[in-house]
Computed example of a mutant assay.
Amino acid sequence: MSLQPIAPQGDSRIEHKTAVVNGHTYHYLLGVPPGGKFNDTVFLIHGWPDLSLGWRYQIPMLLDLGFRVVAPDLMGFGGTDAPKVPPNDINVYGLKRASDNIAELAKIVGADRIILGGHDWGGMVVWRCAQWHPELVSHVFSVCTPYLPPRKEYFSAELLVKGPLPQFQYQIQLASGDVEKSVKDEESIRQFLKGLFGGQGPNGETCFDPYQGLIAENLPLIGDSRLLNGDVLDYYVKEYARHGIHSTLNWYRTRKANWEEDLALLDKQTISIPALYVEATYDTVLTPEMSKGMEAFVPNLTRGDVPATHWALTQKPEEVNAIVSKWLADQGFGTRSSL
């Protein structure tokens, strides 16, 4: 099975497409197996600070298995619109709106049912989309992000940090507006992305820590990242420079808005469709412990784990692909040769 990742430009396996989705332009990658035949469609939803191309190692695997693949840039990222807040409500960056946009994009590409995969924020999106649109999502999988059921009580980020999730301290900083003061042009965006994807300074300096957030003074020191470099890094920098970093950080300003909309799902906490959770054993933010008890709410759950940090998709692509492809096979999905 091919592991040649999707190139950002000029890759014949995918097309860069746009569509107007609920009033906003979305950019998405569209891949169709050779010959144009497919039985099922997989949507792949990225997280922060990532793009649709974050799935560049998984898209070829899914195409090889005979799936059509749709990977959008989320609201505020890359080629997708970045509506300003205000005048727009912050809910435009919320989980329900993202779920509704996936459903609308599925209609646009002619998919009545989809398999839905997510990572990081995209993981939160796919779990909620399975709840908001159960008629659309037949199977769901998430890399790194466990399922967290809707709650009747509201917990602010400050309360979470003081309680069960101290490693979420960075989210308070990301929502504050401080990051934009340091990450504001192509050069600082480049250093920021290199650092977030594992680049370090000459003495091991880092520019991000879950308990501190962005360490701005270290940005100039950051060297190359093994996970994001070359043409792919250049592409990410250009895509992030379209809107700046602010719109992507709006996702961290939606906690209360998401909770308010989640209240309508309190009687739909159980996700009964087949689901896969791929744990990254060295993820310091979405730690493996966070997934304890998921089976109570996701009874048809399969688990897998990879020895990776948060960037499992690109750090351990063979292992992630092996888990996802086996799960799909176990669900009865065939290979391209059977089409």
Rank of each mutant, 00 (worst) to 15 (best):
I273K: 07
N101M: 15
V232E: 06
I215N: 09
I114C: 05
G123R: 01
W55K: 04
G79T: 01
A257L: 05
L219R: 01
A7Y: 13
F197I: 04
W55G: 03
G118M: 00
G213T: 07
Y277E: 01
A106G: 09
A296S: 11
T302D: 09
H27R: 11
D64M: 12
V237M: 00
V306G: 01
A175D: 03
V21Q: 02
D112Y: 10
F168W: 14
C144K: 13
L51P: 01
A296T: 11
G213V: 05
L196E: 11
L63V: 05
G117Q: 09
H24D: 05
N229P: 11
H243M: 13
V183G: 02
E261N: 10
H133M: 10
Y154M: 06
V161A: 05
D185P: 04
G195T: 05
S138D: 12
P83H: 08
V69D: 06
R242G: 05
S188V: 08
A157R: 14
G163V: 13
D112S: 15
L221G: 10
L233D: 00
Q169I: 03
Y236W: 11
P149Q: 11
A130W: 00
P8D: 10
P87A: 12
K17C: 12
L165V: 12
S338R: 14
S99P: 02
V278G: 01
E104K: 14
A130V: 06
G35N: 07
E186P: 06
T206R: 15
L63T: 02
S12D: 15
V92G: 03
R226Q: 15
L160H: 13
R190T: 06
T287Y: 13
P149F: 04
L339G: 12
V183Y: 03
L228S: 02
G117E: 08
V237Q: 03
I14L: 02
T41E: 05
L30C: 08
Q167C: 04
A280L: 12
D89F: 13
Y236G: 03
Q167W: 07
A296V: 08
L221V: 07
V137R: 03
A296C: 04
P288Y: 02
R242T: 15
R336I: 09
G47F: 00
V32G: 07
V320D: 02
D64T: 14
N258K: 08
F208N: 04
V324A: 01
W55L: 05
G54E: 07
D224K: 15
P146R: 06
S337R: 13
V92I: 15
N39E: 14
D234V: 08
A7S: 15
Y147T: 04
S2F: 14
V179G: 01
H27T: 01
P166F: 09
W127M: 08
L214C: 05
P210W: 07
T248L: 11
W48P: 02
E180F: 01
P210Q: 10
D120P: 00
F333E: 02
Y57I: 05
A280S: 14
M1P: 08
N218Y: 01
P83K: 05
L165W: 14
G123I: 08
D81H: 03
Q169L: 09
W48A: 11
E289G: 09
Y28C: 01
I189M: 10
F297T: 04
